[in-house]
Amino acid sequence: MTNSSHFTRRDALGLAAGLVAAAALPGRVWAQAWPGKPIRFVVPFAPGGSSEIVARATAAELAKLLGQSVFVDNKPGAAGNIAMAEVARADDQHTLILGHIGTLAVNPYIFDKLPYDATRDFKPISLLAKVPSLYVVRADLEVKNLKEFVALAKAKPGSLSYGSAGNGSAGHLAFEYLKMASNTFILHVPYRGTGPQLTDLMGGRLDAAAVGAPAVLQFIRSGKLRCIATGTPQRIAQLPDVPTVAEQGFPGFEMTQWYGLLAPANLQQANAERLAAAAAKAVKEPAAAKLLETDAAIPVGSSAAEFAKFIALEQQRWKPVIARAKIKPD
Rank of each mutant, 00 (worst) to 15 (best):
S4D: 14
H6I: 15
F7I: 13
R9H: 15
D11H: 14
A21H: 03
A23W: 14
A23K: 11
G27S: 12
R28K: 09
E52L: 05
V54G: 00
R56E: 15
A60E: 15
L62E: 00
L66G: 03
G67S: 12
V72M: 03
P76V: 09
G80P: 03
M84N: 11
H94F: 08
H94L: 06
V106T: 11
V106P: 00
K113D: 06
L114A: 07
D117A: 08
P124Q: 07
P124C: 05
I125C: 03
K130L: 02
S133I: 09
L134M: 12
K147C: 01
L152S: 04
L152E: 01
A153S: 14
K156I: 06
P157A: 03
Y162V: 06
G163W: 05
G171C: 05
A174R: 11
L178N: 03
K179T: 11
S182N: 03
N183S: 13
F185N: 15
Y191R: 11
G193Y: 11
T194N: 10
Q197M: 15
G204A: 09
A210K: 01
A210M: 01
G212T: 06
A213L: 10
F219G: 00
S222G: 08
G223V: 05
C227V: 12
R235F: 05
A237T: 14
E247G: 05
Y259C: 01
L261R: 07
L262V: 08
A270L: 09
E273G: 10
A282V: 10
K284L: 10
K284T: 11
K290M: 04
L291N: 07
L292G: 00
E293Y: 08
T294M: 08
S302C: 01
A304I: 04
F307C: 05
F307V: 13
Q315P: 03
P320F: 07
V321G: 08
I327C: 07
